[in-house]
Nucleic acid binder design. Sequence first.
DNA 1: AAAAGCGGTGCAATTTTTGCACCACACATT
DNA 2: AATGTGTGGTGCAAAAATTGCACCGCTTTT
Lengths: 300, 300
Amino acid sequence: MRHLQDFTYIEAVIRAGSIRKAAEDMNITASALNRRINRFEDEFGFEIFERLPRGVRLNPAGELMLHHIRNQRSDFTRLQSQVADLSGVRRGHVSIACSQALLPYFLPDQIAQYRADHAGVTFTVNARDRLEAEKELSTFSSDIALVFEPRHLVDFEVVLSITQPIYVMMRADNPLANHRELRLRDCLAVPHVAPSPQFGVRVLLDSAAKKTNFQQLSPIAESESFDFMRHYVVHESAISFQFPIGLNLNGEHGYIARPLSLQDVEPGNLLLGQLRGRSLPVAPARFVQQLSQALQDQAF
Amino acid sequence: MRHLQDFTYIEAVIRAGSIRKAAEDMNITASALNRRINRFEDEFGFEIFERLPRGVRLNPAGELMLHHIRNQRSDFTRLQSQVADLSGVRRGHVSIACSQALLPYFLPDQIAQYRADHAGVTFTVNARDRLEAEKELSTFSSDIALVFEPRHLVDFEVVLSITQPIYVMMRADNPLANHRELRLRDCLAVPHVAPSPQFGVRVLLDSAAKKTNFQQLSPIAESESFDFMRHYVVHESAISFQFPIGLNLNGEHGYIARPLSLQDVEPGNLLLGQLRGRSLPVAPARFVQQLSQALQDQAF
DNA sequence: AAAAGCGGTGCAATTTTTGCACCACACATT
DNA sequence: AATGTGTGGTGCAAAAATTGCACCGCTTTT
C-alpha cells in the first residue's frame, strides 16, 4: 500500500530504536530513511521522534502518531475486507487471543464451523493471559479476545460475558464420579493437580479454599498447561480442575467431569471482547457474532 | 500531506465525474492522473470506478472508499489538532451548521467567548436546515450541527437536547405586550408574520393552530429570513414568532418578546449533535463542551 | 459520416528518491 | 585525555518513479 509506506518506515524506526538499524531492517540506506522521516515530520508540522545520542525515541506527539498509524492500518484492512465481502468472496483474517481453556475443543470447533461456510477466511489463535490479551487488542495484534476475568477493562469492550462453574476432571473409575455434583472439601481431600496461581481457575479455587478447613490447595502437581492436567488425571487417579468450555463432557477422552457446587466456589466469568471503539473487519465481526451465539448456548 | 495525495486525486475525479476534467482541475495531465487511479486500484485490489462512455462513476466499493477517505482526512486533522494542543498552542478550526435562529445572538456570543481564550481557533458558521445539516456532518463538511428537530437521526449523534418554547415578538407598544404569557388564539387574531412552512417554529404553530377556531395561520407576510421577521415587527405593529435563543429578550433591539403558553403550542427541541461515532478534533470538541454548558443554562 | 469526448498506452523528458561518501556530535572505552 | 564507535544529518551523482506528449480505440453526439 503506497500511501501507508511512510507509516511502515516509521513503525520500523520505532521498533529498531534508531534510524540506521531500521534502515538495515527495511533494506534501504540510512540516509534515505532519515530523509523520509524528516520530510514526514516537516509535512506533519511536528517532530515525532526525540533525537538521542544513541538513536531516536517517540515523543508524546509520536505516541499519538503511532496510535493513529495502527488505526489507519486497521481501517484500511477493514475496508478491503468489506469490499471483498460485497464482491461476493468472503475472505479475510481473524486473529484471536484467548485463554488456554478455549484451545482444545471450543475454538477448533467454532473455527471449523465458520470455515465450512467461508473457506477464504484464515485464523490466528494464540493463548494469552488476561493482561496480554488486552494489550494485544490495543496494539491491533489481535482482533478478538476471549479470556476469563480480564483485569483492566479500559481498552477492552465486552461483547458478551458468560459464567462458567469450575468442573472437576477425573477418570471414570474415581469414587468421586458417583456424585452428580462435588463439594470442594471432598476434592481437596484427594490428590489434585492445579493450574499455576495466575490462572482464573486457580484464583477462584484459592479464594474458596480459604473458607474450608483445608485453608489452601495442596496440589501434587502444578502446571501452566491445561493440556498436561487433562492428560495427567488419566494416567494417575488424581483430579484436576477446569472450566467446562475447556473439557469434553462426554467422557470420550478418558476422563469425565463433574461440576463443583456453586455453594463452595464461585463460577468464572468468560468474556468475549474487542478493542473499545474499534470497528472490526467483516470476517472478525461475523466470527464474533457466531462466537457470541455459541457462547450463549454454552451458558450455565 | 503526501500520503493523502492519491485520496485527493480520487476525490477530484469523483467531483469532476471524469478523469480528464479532474486532471484539468488539478493541473496535471489526464494520462498521469489516469495512471495514478489505475495504480491505486491495482494496489487496493479492487476497482473503485465504473468506466462509462462519458466518464467514470464510483461503484459500490468506491462509495466505501470515499467514506474511508473522508474518515482518514478527518482523523489526520484531529491528530494534528491534538498534537498542536499538547504542544501548548490551541489552534484549529470549527465548522458549524446551524439553524438560522442561532445566528444573530447565540453563536456570535459563544464564538467570541471561546476565541477570547483561544485566538488561534477559527470558525465557519452556516445556516442549514435539519436535513442539510445532517448531510454536512456525514460528509465531514461540518463538525457540529445545532438544529431544531432534525429528521433522520441515523448519522446524527445527539450530544445535548434542550426545549425552547415559542416566543412572540412585537413592538413594546403592542397591546399584547401587557400579558406575561400569550395565548395562541390571541396571536392568530392579530396581523402576524410567519416563517416559511419548512421551519420548526412554523411546523409547531401549524399543528397547534389546527386545535384553535382559526384552524390555520393567516400570515400577512411569510419569509425564510428570521432576520427579516425580527425587523418587520419593529416597522409595522405586527407580531412574529421565534425561539428565545434567536431573540434578545431585553428589548434593546426595538422589539420585546413574550412566551406562548405551553398549553397551546409544544416547545421546540434544539439539538446539538455531531457525526455518529466520530471523534472530533480538539477545538471542535472543546467548543461542543462550551456550547453544551451554555445551552443548559439557556434551558427552559 | 464526422466530430467530440472518454479512458488507456508507448516513449522520452522531468522530477523525485536513493545510495554513497562524508560531517559533526555524543558517549563509551581505553 | 585520547580514541573509537555509533548516531543523525547533508552534498552530489546515480537510479527510479512520475509526468507530459502524442497517440489509439471506443462510444456518443452532432
